[in-house]
Design a protein around this nucleic acid. Sequence first.
DNA 1: AATTCTTAGATTGTCGACAGTTTAATGACG
DNA 2: CGTCATTAAACTGTCGACAATCTAAGAATT
Lengths: 234, 234
Amino acid sequence: MRTISPPVGLPALNETDLVGQVARRLTEAIVQGRLPPGSKVVEAGIARELGVSRAPVREAARLLEQQGLLVANPRRGFFVRQFAADDIDEIYDLRLCVERHAAVLAARNLTPETRDMLRRQIDVLHETADLDDPARQVEEDYRFHRLICEIAGNRRMLRLFDDLASELRMVIGLIGRLYDDPHEIARTHEPVLAAIEAGHPERIVAHVDYHIGHAWREVGRLVREIPPWPAAAK
Amino acid sequence: MRTISPPVGLPALNETDLVGQVARRLTEAIVQGRLPPGSKVVEAGIARELGVSRAPVREAARLLEQQGLLVANPRRGFFVRQFAADDIDEIYDLRLCVERHAAVLAARNLTPETRDMLRRQIDVLHETADLDDPARQVEEDYRFHRLICEIAGNRRMLRLFDDLASELRMVIGLIGRLYDDPHEIARTHEPVLAAIEAGHPERIVAHVDYHIGHAWREVGRLVREIPPWPAAAK
DNA sequence: AATTCTTAGATTGTCGACAGTTTAATGACG
DNA sequence: CGTCATTAAACTGTCGACAATCTAAGAATT
């Protein structure tokens, strides 16, 4: 005797989504540097470690490959991606191009609700700045930029942002720290939001350029300083 | 007794890349409309039809999912993507944003060689226009735009272009025809190249906007005219 | 000692099978 | 007749196995 289907339309969490879980675990391991760039990802090893078979691991690896965290060599296996300085330039070049556009669109679609969401996120950034938790800080930073893309309302643009962010998360995670003064970072988001609220395309682009350009230079500098990745084992 | 390894560094074609082959076959079937939008892609069926097991089919499907041709419903299978009018808008919005930038970068990197490649591709477009082969025409059109992205020199941007193009190819393939006068299309590429050769960012953006905007309106119109896809079987 | 050949171990690509879920068809009931 | 349970078929998610290939260690050769 089965009772009625659930009345509230809940997102229906994929109870047994092995592929997703494996993908998350792998991502975590990569970002935390436990799987250093250049190292081989042995399917059977991961599978044994997680108590699953190789099939879900393979599919998860393909996912991470598409996200740019892994590189596949046919008949040779998956390897953790190695980033060079010019990868950073590519990512930020594209990101800048897209986020400029996203911000302009977001301004066009801005409602009181979405405006408040952005403001609240800046508050969160300030709160997080006190926690001395770099990973969390980076995460909340992305959340702000992601919000802009969401408000822009182009799903493909949002996906692109997520892909670029996943690569950046890896790089930044490996660098370890990013910002010297987390509060300063929180502050630099404010003029971006102000420009969006004002709705002047030129001003928006100028502020986005300044903000992202800053991060670009910063990350680029750090990558060039600590270049040969931690331990390209194997 | 094995002779020496081949002296010339050839690309080493992946003899037995089942996943890739399956992916190509599937793509073909989708673009040609044999797998209509909304229809279910049964793994076992495809596998049997191609004489392989389900594993490669699954991985190929995941690939096409990332490319936006399929949609995965957990525990329910893969379905051929259904495009609505707003999908077209999303794709072209993003494409415009990216190609503007690509064209400006291409102008910056332009060499006599790459310039000639672009010119030659326009010639090819004119030649193809006489063939009355819409699919080929669309293909050569993409080749021109892709060249610009290649010359721009950002690999991630190129990949984004390819993904967007693969979605557009599907839509346009299903629409059947695209251009009334293929020669006119060939001609409209010329001012774009001219602007890139001249190297004025504003002029480049203006011409790219005009060219892509034209295609946007055209495709948008056709999609709205022939809206409910051919046969959303199943 | 350095380089090439040989061989054993490790790893990927692919396959067929099985359990659990979804879907469609059938029949019961209002 | 239409709605709701019941059952059978179809399909996905996952697994373990096997052959083909790659990798690395050791032997042979110069």
